[in-house]
């Protein structure tokens, strides 16, 4: 099962390194593998045999957005799929913020009396999209792609796309209960790496570092 698979992978990687006589790197790798070993064992004893969602938590800052966008109203109350608005997630490295025209597609008629919608309408009429602030960011030296993660965890698993929010929640947390998005996962290297080890993601530095 997962534990055997993981151990096998680790040892073959080690062999590869040794063959290439990279002594420094090999020694460091031995240390690295030993360090992550307990995680491998622990995660393998958890429930899901194939996918191990990342753990960890982080209490992000409260980001003040130009409009206090209520994710909960959209996702929980109205059942809108994440990828309806963040439409590029399956096609690009970035998920994308929806164009203002998409908001207005509904809000020309829905909830037009609410102050937040009135503010949105103002932006629309001034022909400038709201200056949304970035909440989930990775450093510039990191190459992250939504596209391949969705392929791995949704499309390759025949995971029902209507429930995609469960997969999004791996990294973005329980967005359906948030108003504006709040960073609840650390999104740092150790956290990413743990998940890569647990779920067979690439271990090569250049897979993620650019």
């Amino acid at each position: 099962m997962a534990v055997n698979k993981q151990n096998h992978k680790s040892s073959s990687r080690l062999k590869l390194l040794l063959e290439k006589r990279h002594i420094w790197f090999a020694m460091l790798s031995i240390a690295a593998v030993l360090a992550v070993y307990p995680f491998v064992v622990m995660s393998s004893s958890s429930s899901a045999p194939e996918i191990v969602p990342p753990g960890g938590s982080h209490n992000g800052e409260n980001v003040e957005q130009p409009i206090e966008f209520p994710h909960n109203t959209h996702v929980k109350d109205n059942g809108i799929n994440c990828m309806y608005c963040h439409t590029y997630a399956r096609r690009s490295k970035v998920a994308g913020i929806p164009p203002t025209s998409k908001c207005m597609g509904c809000h020309k008629v829905i909830a037009t009396d609410k102050p937040r919608i009135q503010k949105l309408t103002e932006y629309w009429e001034q022909k400038s999209p709201p200056p949304w602030k970035k909440v989930h960011d990775v450093p510039d030296f990191v190459h992250f792609t939504h596209e391949k993660h969705l392929k791995r965890f949704v499309f390759d698993q025949d995971f029902p796309v209507e429930n995609v929010k469960e997969v999004c929640a791996f990294c973005h947390g329980d967005v359906e209960n948030m108003t504006v998005a709040h960073k609840v996962k650390p999104l740092n290297m150790g956290w990413c790496k743990t998940c890569h080890i647990n779920n067979g993601g690439p271990g090569d530095c250049w897979a993620c570092h650019k």
Partner: peptide, 17 residues
């Protein structure tokens, strides 16, 4: 320059797709 602070950088979205 690398910034990792939340809510400091703007994500520029489009008005129209």
């Amino acid at each position: 320059t690398v910034t990792l602070e939340e809510g400091k950088e703007e994500v520029v979205s489009y008005l129209m797709p």
